[in-house]
Design a protein around this nucleic acid. Structure first.
Length: 653
DNA sequence: GTTGTTCAACTTTAGACAGCATGTC
DNA sequence: CTAAAGTTGAACAAC
């Protein structure tokens, strides 16, 4: 099937041809057969890089009305936004937490790209445009099975389908074990394929040789397993990377932790890989870009490394640094990225060879094998269309785990997608939201609304009644819901909590903290008071408290006790509270004017971690202000603290 | 006293969505 | 109370 054959206006056909697209890829053709262009619902379970974007565009461009593209990450949203924006005559909007088209304009765009939480939030805040949607594309639907975020996705989709019963849904999934279940839920045609535009061979390294799934075996150049220095997984990884690079390709190496990503990069840099890849001069420019994106010690190390064509990539990096690395690699100005698993789920960064050194991860209860889905996503980054003859993914192991790796990841099926909706916290949040938005006004109403979820479609007798009854009781206890006219209704507090997009537990904590603060001596209410209030909330992530820091934090807690809304004896999770106090302390120093570089060094936290905590704090302080207004509490420290966290007052221009 | 080496005990460990409301020289 | 790798620091040897 050719682009000319599609029911598209000539300008689009022209655009796609200009992009070099003539013939549709088989999965795309299958989706057209299934009716993406005629408004049919379609679930496509296909590998990354097999042309999902075009598939999404076919649905959106042929739909008779505005479209919505839902994706899980802000960086992905931006990437898609740019791709859609390149289409002739299509007006595109974007709506994510960090980057937002004006709300009034969203309704006027042909396509809006948004994160799933932002869509959920828009629904909760009564955005009218959702009811007019003709087509919704959901990228990475398999995240339905993600513990924290899956429920949001399924409830939001159920609500969207309720509000706009005729929307076309196009769902894009990674290869999973049960795509038919997702398709059955959406009553959609299933397109399933493992076709890829570039061949991928996956192999397992052990004992100085790689055994690939196409039956071939390969030695590793310049690698002597009998040399004691060449024995470990890291040495093998380095050799595999070096080999790919010296034959003119680029490589990605995945390791378990941030520190190891940096270490591996150091090690590879010492080998001077850039020369081999003939990207030397360009790499120097990348180093400059990294420096321009902000100077911390970590940033400087990244720049030095990038100058040699080798970068590292993890969430401790500021988002700007991350995107510099991603873009430079895509432009072939870097030879290697050593990364934690972040990179596997993120923006499109294909390489000739992918080396997965670590396949296990620490979980708090020992180390566990990574899900096959995750490893497949890493491996799927191998092979650049038009640039590489093939892609190669190599799992590094030793003789002992060779068979296990082979079974688990080369031959093994990816996991099934399973609903996480039964989770109490998730149900509490969504029950409140459903009532607050007026979708439901009784327990039966909530259950009925949840009837449209993936969970309900998978469970013959959805027995959510018990849990929903429980959480309604809790919400009434929290004064967020109240009995009303034989049913239930949201209180002013409940409505505000839902609109501010914080969890009920966070709302509860804010109420308690605000009441305490209101009763405190005003002279004791400082930025630290506001920050501790917000940091000791389930919606804020804690900061790791090192063994050596613990005593100092304890001391700090004692010294500043009068400013805090939590007494040291009051909490049943003292350790957890100390961790959140550390977060508050770091932010308090930032507010006082301590430069970020210093904080990063003093508290051993990544610049990216600091950045994300500042963002969350701004949001939560805003939410705290809204809750305070409901309670009739006036606490100027909330707003003033938030103001002094704003980028222009904390960062150099 | 200083520097170097070894080894055992201790420390650390991936990621990242979200609010709101607008005017001004 | 899991596991694997990195880091620290004590003990000791050589200078």
């Amino acid at each position: 099937m050719r682009v000319d054959d599609l029911p598209l206006s000539p300008e689009y056909v022209e655009h796609f041809r200009a992009e070099g697209i003539e013939e549709l890829y088989p999965p795309q053709a299958a989706a057209v057969e299934a009716g993406v262009c005629e408004g049919r619902d379609v679930v496509a379970a296909v590998p990354t890089a097999s042309g999902k974007t075009l598939l999404a565009q076919l649905g959106l461009l042929t739909a008779d009305g505005p479209g919505l593209y839902v994706c899980p990450l802000r960086a992905l949203a931006r990437e898609k936004y740019e791709e859609f924006d390149a289409l002739p005559g299509v007006s595109v909007g974007i709506s994510t937490g960090d980057f937002d088209s004006p709300a009034a304009e969203l309704a006027d765009h042909d396509v809006v790209v948004a994160t799933s939480e932002k869509v959920d939030s828009a629904v909760r805040n009564g955005a009218a445009w959702v009811a007019d949607l003709a087509c919704v594309v959901v990228d990475e639907v398999h995240l339905l099975g993600a513990p924290g975020r899956g429920p949001t996705l399924e409830v939001t989709l159920a609500t969207l389908r309720r509000r706009a019963p005729d929307v076309q849904v196009v769902a894009l999934s990674a290869t999973v074990d049960n795509p038919e279940h997702v398709a059955a839920w959406l009553d959609a045609e299933l397109v399933e394929s493992d076709w890829r535009p570039v061949d991928l061979r996956t192999g397992v390294y052990a004992d100085a040789a790689v055994r690939f799934d196409d039956g071939t075996t390969a030695d590793v150049d310049g690698f002597d397993p009998d040399d004691p220095a060449d024995g470990g997984d890291t040495e093998a990884t380095a050799a595999l990377v070096r080999e790919a690079v010296s034959s003119g390709g680029q490589a990605l190496a995945f390791v378990r932790s941030r520190r190891e990503a940096e270490r591996l990069a150091d090690r590879l840099r010492e080998e001077g890989l850039a020369d081999a890849a003939e990207i030397g001069p360009d790499a120097a420019a990348v180093a400059e870009e990294v420096r321009d994106a902000g100077g911390t010690e970590l940033g400087e190390r990244l720049a030095e490394s990038a100058a040699w064509g080798v970068a590292f990539h993890h969430a401790g990096l500021r988002s700007q640094h991350r995107s510099v690395v991603e873009n430079a690699f895509r432009d072939r100005r870097l030879a290697v990225i050593c990364a934690t698993p972040t990179l596997a789920a993120g923006v499109n960064v294909p390489a000739r060879r992918v080396v997965v050194r670590d396949q296990q991860r620490y979980t708090g209860t020992g180390t566990e094998w990574l899900p096959a889905l995750e490893v497949h996503q890493m491996c799927g980054r191998a092979g650049r269309p038009h640039l590489d003859p093939y892609g190669e993914a190599v799992l590094v192991g030793d003789a002992d785990d060779r068979d296990e790796l082979w079974e688990r990841y080369v031959e093994g099926e990816p996991e099934a997608v399973e609903s996480q909706l039964r989770d109490r916290d998730a149900l509490r949040t969504h029950t409140l939201a459903l009532v607050a938005t007026g979708i439901a006004n009784s327990q039966a109403g909530v259950l009925e609304a949840l009837g449209g979820t993936f969970y309900a479609s998978r469970t013959p007798n959805p027995d959510l009644g018990g849990i929903v009854g429980d959480v309604i009781g809790e919400l009434i206890e929290m004064d967020m819901l109240a009995p009303d006219d034989g049913g239930i209704a949201a209180t002013e507090l409940g409505e505000q909590v839902s609109r501010q997009y914080v969890t009920p537990r966070t709302g509860e904590r804010l109420v308690a903290g605000l009441r305490t603060a209101a009763a405190m001596d005003p002279a004791d209410v400082t930025p630290l008071t506001a920050l501790e209030l917000v940091c000791a909330t389930p919606d804020m992530h804690d900061t790791y408290l090192g063994e050596r820091e613990r005593a100092a934090m304890y001391q700090y807690a004692r010294e500043h006790g009068s400013e805090l809304t939590t007494g040291m004896g009051e909490t049943d999770d003292f350790e957890g509270w100390l961790e959140s106090l550390k977060t508050a302390r770091v932010l308090a120093e930032l507010v006082e004017g301590v430069p970020p570089e210093e904080l990063v060094a003093d508290y051993r936290i990544g610049p990216g971690d600091l950045e994300s905590r500042v963002e969350r704090t701004e949001w939560l302080l805003g939410a705290a202000g809204a809750v305070a207004a409901v309670l009739g509490i006036d606490l100027p420290a909330l707003e003033s603290t938030r103001a002094s966290l704003q980028p222009d007052s904390t960062e150099a221009p």
